Amino acid sequence: MNNKYKLLVIEDETNIRSFVKTILDTNGYQVLTAGSLRQGMLVYSSHHPDLVLLDLGLPDEDGMSFISKIRRSDSTPIIVLSARTQENDKVTALDAGANDYITKPFGTAELLARVRAALRNRRYEGIQGGEDVNGGYRFKDLEIDYARRLVRVREKEIKLTQTEYNIVALLSQHAGRVLTYASIIQAVWGSSDAGSIKKLQVNMANIRKKLGSRPGEKNYIVNELGVGYRMQDEA
């Protein structure tokens, strides 16, 4: 297997850096590494990787600085690998432009799934804002026709309100990526107020009911508690 994707791992802890590099090497990725933010910036500018795995607690500067510097000009996917488990740390990183946030410790399967999702999301963004060549999105029994604003589950049309459709379409165009509550609210309503999160939660409850979501099952939309929502893009 050689998928040709070039990944940069910026992590100061040698054992974690080696662990991540081994996993990615074994799965056919080209892996570059750095142990500090400064070194990471140098490697990034020299090699232009397809994806960055970033620790926030770096010795010379906080990893958040890397996100803000890269996002001034590039949309390269960034997955944060951090021991910081507070919801506000996750929200801050995601709102700053990180594509995903994995809390340490993490397993091999989870890491690889998140990498695949972030790389797919980058590919979506290169095709008219997330639409595939047929102007639609499909995952398991869920099908979205962007041109006709239609949503089907098991080939049966699902009647969504305009707002509900806008939320589903937005999440599907960033499938595999966590979108924070604030970013969804901004994209769908254009502004936020004191009741915005409640409004989003009510719409999401209606969407999940209409899509046939059931407790304990792998559903189309996952709630990352206190952070935001993610549309699944693989079983």
Rank of each mutant, 00 (worst) to 15 (best):
E131C: 14
H47T: 11
R148P: 03
V133Y: 09
E11R: 06
S82L: 03
D141G: 03
I70Q: 11
G135Y: 10
L225T: 06
K69F: 13
Q173S: 15
G97F: 08
K4V: 02
K4R: 05
N99R: 08
G195H: 08
K210Q: 13
E11Q: 10
R38N: 14
S75L: 15
T14A: 15
L94K: 13
R214V: 04
S18E: 14
S68Q: 11
T163G: 05
E164S: 14
E110T: 13
I67E: 07
G212F: 02
Y29G: 02
L54H: 01
D25V: 04
L51S: 08
N88Y: 12
L119A: 03
A182F: 11
T33D: 09
N121P: 03
V52Q: 00
I144C: 08
G190M: 13
F66W: 04
N88W: 11
S75F: 12
K90D: 00
V20P: 12
Q128D: 06
I79C: 02
Y220D: 05
K210I: 03
R122M: 11
M231C: 14
S183M: 00
G226P: 06
D193M: 06
L142A: 09
Y165N: 09
G228Q: 07
G126V: 09
R177D: 07
A175T: 08
G226W: 05
I167F: 13
A34C: 01
G57T: 00
S196T: 09
E125W: 07
S45I: 02
Y146C: 01
S73M: 06
G126S: 12
S192E: 06
P215T: 00
G40E: 02
I79W: 00
E157S: 10
Y229E: 05
A96W: 05
V153I: 09
S191R: 11
D12M: 02
T92L: 14
M231G: 14
L111M: 02
R148I: 02
P215V: 00
H47Q: 12
Y229W: 08
K156P: 04
I207C: 15
T103D: 04
